[in-house]
Structure formats: C-alpha cells, structure tokens
C-alpha cells in the first residue's frame, strides 16, 4: 500500500489553494535496472479531487509525471472547513484516497 498523500488546502481570498504530494514510484516502463531488465511500468493513471462533496477535478496522467507527483490546483467558491478528498488509481489497479480540510 502506498504511503498517504500530503494534502494542503488553504483559502486565499475566495479561492482554495490545494497542493498535494503523492507517494508513487511513477515507473515509466522505459528504464532498465542494473541487470539490464526493463523495470515494468507502474504509474498513476487517474486522479480525482472533490471539495465540499463536489467533484471539481478529474484527470488522467501518463508515465511522464515525475516520481512522487506534486499537483497544485485552485478552486473558487470553496470555504474554510470544506473537506478535500483526493483519490488516485494506478495502472496496476492500486488506489489510495486521502482527505484534508480547507483551512
């Protein structure tokens, strides 16, 4: 099981500034290990972000996102105290969901 995401969500004016750090190897499937074997691809394929119970972002990612991906998003109309729920699913079907509160 992957490590928890680190999520920071803060109001700036009427906009919530959300940053998330995901813990993931993001193997591209192009790299070779010391023995010359190709390291199989293992990367996050889809991400969703819900704020205050509403789906605000939904995205697909490929292997070219850096290891331990960091994303920054902005959501208008959110309020302090809203719950932020972020979910990812990778190409092996592993998934992780973490929550934070807008501060």
């Amino acid at each position: 099981m992957a490590d928890p995401m680190k999520i920071r969500a803060q109001m700036k004016g009427d906009t919530a500034d959300i940053r998330v750090l995901m813990s993931h190897a993001m193997e591209t499937g192009q790299r070779k290990d010391n023995a010359g074997n190709t390291v199989p691809a293992h990367y996050i394929q889809s991400i969703t972000v819900d704020v205050g119970g509403k789906r605000v972002l939904q995205g697909q990612t490929g292997p070219a996102i850096s290891r331990n991906p960091v994303f920054g998003f902005k959501v208008k109309g959110a309020k302090a105290g809203d719950k932020v729920v972020i979910n990812w699913v990778d190409n092996k079907g592993e998934k992780r969901t973490d929550e934070a509160t807008v501060g």
């Binding site: 993001m26 789906r55 972002l57 939904q58 990612t61 991906p69 960091v70 920054g72 959501v75």
Partner: peptide, 29 residues
C-alpha cells in the same frame, strides 16, 4: 504535452464546480 518524450501526452485534467483552469505539476523530460 512534451513534444519529444516517448509518449508526449503527460496529463489532462477537467475542471468543474469552481475549479480554476490552472494547475501546477512536475513532469519528466
């Protein structure tokens, strides 16, 4: 998209319900 990467498309996100069409990310090149 990163033009010369083996697979150019890195990510695509959809915005709704107040999400500002703006994002920060880190890509491999």
């Amino acid at each position: 998209l990163v033009d010369k990467n083996p697979f150019p498309l890195t990510t695509a996100f959809d915005f709704a319900n107040g999400a500002v069409p703006e994002m920060a990310l880190r890509v491999k090149m």
